[in-house]
Design a protein around this nucleic acid. Structure first.
Length: 479
RNA sequence: CGGGGCGUGGCUCAGUUUGGCUAGAGCACUCGGUUCGGGACUGAGAGGUCGAGCGUUCAAAUCGCUCCGCCCCGACCA
């Protein structure tokens, strides 16, 4: 497991990340190029993410459904931009049951097309609308360069697909789900995000508009952490999703789609992790508390384990997710480092002295070393733990927000801009288009992450073209 | 697909330049003993077609050719 120190983030951020994912036991490499195996500890985190998203989807009227992993190849071609966007990264099945297939099947890279096919069958009348469906599944995109959780050939996600009678409704849905993502990121994952609109060159293939939540990672690069697309009538027209309105006139639907993936796990790692390892936000942590029993001999062992069992039961009653590390084969010191690597928010040590004094040692993962360690009475421990978990959750969000603020700059010239995007975000007035974006990317590796929904108002001078600009955008290097 | 690097026990690597003894080390693993409040110590043990194939040679991890795989950098991306 964890036998030595991680490289520090300053030494080699990429290597820090790679080793952490493996050593925190989140995931492993698969025998298939670019694919990953999500291990139980990582999958439990994903389940907690799923639960928090799913309850929000349900609360906004969506239901889950299952759709096929195979999509007829011809479906992909029906929407022009969509096929252009996805063709290069498709996995295609040409043989089934030993026979060459009449029509090759694409392993779904996303389900807009097969959804379009189905919705066209299901929608006849304005009374059938809206359709509000979400899918929990995995999709495959044959990526050139992969990195665990951030970009793999197969990844797990949810994809919501809705169909509406009007453009206004579709836009409202798109923005509502963007809000759901932002609320989830901020309040569950403790990751501050910027809600914004993607530029044309960054939007989803086939969408009218793409909205995004963008987060700053520990190396100041940006990570697109969730997207919500207003598909307009593009897919409705390609798949003939039509209905009769109140006036008995045929209309095309307006559709949306929105997704958030296991990439969020990468975001959690890179937002909160430190040189000791992971720091799990308490609300999503697989284990919120780990209890390490400490004893020298059999005489001490009994009473200690008895106290541990009692404390565990109290925490479980208080609905705290708690793990007792009763491994006899490794030392307490090893366990401390191991669980710090894995990011458990609170560690409780129970030793002979604690048994005598009815106390425990309680350590907060967000404050390493002595500073985060205190000795607290066993009486009222459950309440103390719940309060501390809330504190940690708040502290993580606060720290990440301060970090983002400290690394977001407002350059006004291209020279300043070039320096700034080496090590942070640039929040700038911008009047350029596709061509300017491409040139800036070429020269600085930075791209427009989004046009934030929250705008200062007024106008300014574009840092690049010198033209008057009416909006500020965020430029950054990204994953 | 272009440029660079690397393939030796589970992992990290030494050995390859200059071919030559039974292919080594550390970590991890198994069994025993002592330990246990910040990554324990010790004794014994198990584990290797040296990425694959062909060739050169008395002799190949080591030299040559071919292939395969992985990593890094670029072009593409939730």
């Amino acid at each position: 497991m964890s036998d030595a120190k991680l490289p520090t983030r300053a030494e080699d951020y990429s290597e820090w990340y790679n080793q952490l994912v493996l050593r925190a036991d989140l995931a492993d490499y698969a025998p298939v190029r670019g694919c990953m195996i999500v291990k139980p500890y990582g999958w439990t985190l994903w389940e907690n993410i799923q639960y928090q998203l799913d309850r929000r989807f349900k609360a906004t009227g969506h239901l889950n459904a299952g759709f096929p992993v195979f999509i007829p190849k011809s479906f992909l071609s029906k929407e022009k931009e969509h096929v252009e966007g996805f063709s290069p990264e498709l996995a295609v099945v040409t043989i089934g049951g030993g026979e060459e297939l009449e029509e090759p099947l694409v392993v779904r890279p996303t389900s807009e097309t097969i959804i379009g096919y189905s919705y066209a069958k299901w929608v006849k009348s304005y009374r059938d609308l809206p359709i509000l469906i979400n899918l929990w599944n995995s999709v495959v995109r044959w990526e050139m360069r992969t990195k665990l959780f951030l970009r793999t050939a197969e990844f797990w996600w949810q994809e919501g697909h809705t169909a509406h009678a009007t453009a206004e409704e579709a836009e409202a849905e798109t923005l509502q789900m963007l809000d759901v993502y932002a609320d989830f990121a901020i309040n569950e994952a403790a990751i501050p995000v910027v809600k914004g609109l993607k530029t044309d060159s960054e939007k989803f293939a086939g969408a009218l508009r793409t909205y995004t939540i963008e987060a700053m990672m520990g190396d100041t690069k940006a990570l697109q952490s969730g997207t919500s697309h207003n598909l307009g009538q593009n897919f409705a027209k390609a798949f003939e999703i039509q209905y009769l309105d109140r006036n008995n006139e045929t209309q095309f639907c307006w559709t949306t789609s929105w997704g958030l993936s296991t990439r969020m796990i990468g975001a959690i790692i890179m937002t909160h992790g430190d040189d000791q390892g992971l720091i799990m936000p308490p609300r999503l942590a697989p284990w919120q508390v780990v209890i390490v029993p400490i004893y020298k001999n059999d005489a001490e062992r009994g009473p200690v384990l008895e106290a541990v069992a009692r404390i565990k039961a109290e925490l479980v009653d208080a609905e705290v997710r708690v793990k007792v590390d009763d491994r006899d084969t490794v030392s307490p010191g090893f366990k401390f480092n191991d669980w710090e690597m894995r990011g458990v928010p609170i560690r409780i040590e129970v030793g002979p002295k604690d048994v005598q004094k009815n106390s425990v040692a309680l350590s907060r993962r967000d404050r390493p070393g002595r500073e985060g360690k205190s000795f607290v009475p066993q009486a009222g421990l459950a309440e103390q733990v719940k309060t501390t978990l809330k504190d940690i959750q708040a502290a993580l969000l606060e720290r990440a927000t301060a970090f983002r603020k400290a690394n977001t700059h407002e350059p006004t010239t291209y020279d300043e801009f070039k320096t700034v995007v080496e090590k942070g975000w640039a929040h700038v007035w911008f009047a350029g288009g596709r061509e300017e974006e491409a040139r800036i990317k070429e020269e600085t590796k930075a791209t427009v992450r989004c046009i934030p929904l929250e705008q200062p108002g007024g106008s300014g001078t574009c840092f690049y073209t010198g033209q008057p600009a009416t909006q500020k955008v965020i430029f950054a290097r990204s994953y």
